[in-house]
Design a protein around this nucleic acid. Structure first.
Lengths: 196, 196
DNA sequence: CGTTTTTAATTGACTAGTCAATCAACAAAA
DNA sequence: TTTTGTTGATTGACTAGTCAATTAAAAACG
């Protein structure tokens, strides 16, 4: 059975299985055995490729974050004006793919693991910082620096907040309502009223 | 040594120890042994009082949520006008006590556990619903129903979002900045501009 | 009041089970 | 034959939950 060049597909399968298993079980308390079985191999092989459990989990986390980042970059490449680019970031952040139950559960679980694992924490920080600086870059071209900074913070929090609420409430607003709220927020903030 | 009337302080100590232990370890992967040791008793006694591990965790969760609810109610009782009451809810939601690292970590961990445990899910739903309806009740007196609903959704998401961001980023805005952002949001939304 | 019985509090030792990680061994490709 | 892929079996550490036994307070009794 041993064919050569198995390393890449095996790693891929393990990462995929990890995300699905974490999503299905709804937490990080997955066993290497469960992951390996879903990926169609023995636990020993999983250890062979990743060394230990934590590295499997981190690889899965890295995969989710880089998928997210790639999607944002892709949407961003399509448009020109700051306003379009801002909307592109918001759209990409609310992409349907992020709302698949497994992904949401995995995301949430990673947030918790970040409290224990410095490397996981670092990864999430990178994601948060990139989102923030992406937003800020566009907003600075649309309003004054102070308001831009505040809006970037608020939009980041709104995105994370809606995401986490979506994870466990059925009456949470759906994707389209969320985008409406985000657009309404930016629109109102950028319309100059009384305050300087 | 056995004194009578120990049940109540023991339960209290176990709940307290659970929150601290979950907060310190940054997840739900705490052992009954760790909790019991921190509470100054044997694992058997912890089982004696709560039956099993899940009930210990749920009791701790219930305690955190009821503390939160009591605080909101307390602040709410102090003021009269809808606008004051709205601000009271926001202030209470952002109270310093909720930002103690242990509480934040425990809160986050409970969110994850809610994916696995129906009872935990139910408890969090109650919290979310109460926050939402509290906000909605005041907002309906300040603006039209559609906008009130949208604002309640947005404010809930902002609160949860800032909370979760605070849990793992040092550059996240602090309590006062967050309150500024929340107030700025409500202020702008309630100021009638162009759109009906 | 003194004695006996009941009851709550408490634990150490034990059971039965899980899981991450290791290892020795085997199969095929190069 | 060396390298790469692969596994079953095993180990060692840890965990939830149980249980019988112990202690002391309280209550019942004479």
């Amino acid at each position: 059975m041993p064919k050569i060049g198995m390393e890449e597909p095996r790693r891929r399968a393990l990462i995929d299985a990890t995300i699905h298993e974490v999503g299905a079980r709804g937490g990080m308390d997955v066993t290497v055995g469960q992951i390996a079985r879903r990926a169609g191999m023995s636990t020993a092989l999983a250890h062979h490729y990743f060394g230990n459990k934590e590295r499997i989990l981190l690889a899965a986390m890295r995969h989710i974050l880089s998928t997210f980042g790639a999607l944002v970059r892709e949407e961003l490449a399509r448009v020109e004006t700051p306003m379009q680019r801002l909307n592109a970031i918001l759209d990409a952040s609310m992409d349907r793919r992020h709302f698949e139950p497994e992904t949401v559960a995995a995301w949430l679980a990673f947030y918790v693991q970040a409290q224990q694992s410095p490397e996981a924490r670092r990864l999430l920080r990178v994601y948060a910082l990139r989102l923030h600086s992406n937003l800020l870059h566009e907003l600075k071209q649309l309003t004054d620096p102070a308001r831009a900074a505040r809006m970037a913070q608020a939009l980041s929090a709104l995105i994370d907040g809606f995401y986490i609420r979506h994870a466990l409430q059925d009456q949470a607003p759906d994707r389209d309502d969320i985008i409406d709220i985000l657009r309404d927020y930016t629109c109102r903030q950028l319309t100059e009223t009384g305050q300087p």
